[in-house]
Design a protein around this nucleic acid. Structure first.
Lengths: 182, 182
DNA sequence: AAAGCCATGTAACCAGTTACATGATTCT
DNA sequence: AGAATCATGTAACTGGTTACATGGCTTT
């Protein structure tokens, strides 16, 4: 039974930090995990449904004051157990797709400027991402003692910083290399 | 018509470097692109079929001497045009999935050692990858003038080095952070 | 008035993996 | 003898995206 179903566990894990709605989960993933994971509503809502069916989470409906109703989900003891089991299991290796590297590999077929401009845009994007990570880091360090979870979240932020920094360094190096052999 | 079909273009791009078989394409991707892209036979053979149907590549059958027959594909002028068009188009942003970061985010639910061991294994894996990249780099630098493609391939290798180095640095930092707060 | 956010959900589609089938040759 | 490598391919499945539907509230 080698089913992966990672989406289920991402959802379960986030709910283990605190009870929330499907909408909240989407926000969290987009804002705090976007540099290493993503989830669409098309994955989240079916996952919540199936977690509930399996008794790993329970649902409570909050009347929406000035807005639609919210369905808030909470992890059950069985849910915590399932999460722990998944956490103890093996990690799969990173799946990474850099389309920019793909296009660069075949870069000799287009003008050099096309490649240089791509690299500059990439650099820009990563510069922004790095600044975001630095903000997260500051915020986290201020509340580090307030929860055991924070140190683990900090680790992921540090990885984000490292990745973005290495992207920027590489882009600079690559632009220079291309320019010097005009 | 927002179809992606990246597999088609990876195959087309590799064939633009030199004519080869589906099997060869798989080798190339696994050996020289594995750190930023991957393809399975289940993508390669259907892609070759459809590229041929669209007149972007032509097929020649080589009688296998001491082995099975090989079908060697060559890019047509229309194929080169299609490749160029794709190369000029926009790049999609990186899709990255670090399952290790996912499990680390929820790391407070398991013993600290589990997390530390994960990080150590990750570090080890990335050391090996870095060494591989350094070998590629040496080989490439020796033949840099022999083809216009080599400089572009070198750029991707440099990115690989940067990524792996930053993984290693991060893992060390993360292990230390976890250990010091026992 | 229009755009955007809050909030939930489904159906159709596209992308990618895995397991399987076939069969010869070469290496241990 | 058995495993690995060369070589091609398909079918069934799992995973994930996108477009759509609904509708109220808030901001420009």
């Amino acid at each position: 039974m080698p089913k992966k179903n990672s989406a289920r566990f991402v959802v379960l894990g986030l709910l283990s930090h605190e009870p929330m709605s499907g909408y909240d989960i989407k926000q969290r993933v987009d804002r705090q995990m976007s540099y290493f994971w993503d989830l669409s509503y098309g994955q989240i809502y079916p996952a919540l449904r199936s977690l509930e069916d399996d008794g790993l989470v329970t649902k409570e409906i909050e009347e929406g004051e000035g807005g639609p109703d919210r369905k808030v989900y909470t992890v059950t003891p069985a849910g915590h157990e399932a999460l722990r089991e998944w956490l103890m299991g093996p990690v799969e290796t990173e799946r990474i797709r850099y389309e920019i590297l793909l296009k660069l590999t075949f870069g000799s077929h287009v003008a050099k400027d096309v490649n240089v401009e791509r690299l500059e845009a990439f650099r820009e994007r990563n510069e922004e991402n790095l600044r975001m990570m630095e903000m997260y880091e500051d915020n986290l360090r201020n509340v580090l003692e307030q929860s055991e979870d924070h140190i683990y979240i900090l680790l992921t932020v540090l990885m984000g910083k490292g990745i973005y920094r290495s992207h920027i360094t590489w882009a600079d190096q690559a632009i220079e290399l291309l320019k010097e052999r005009s």
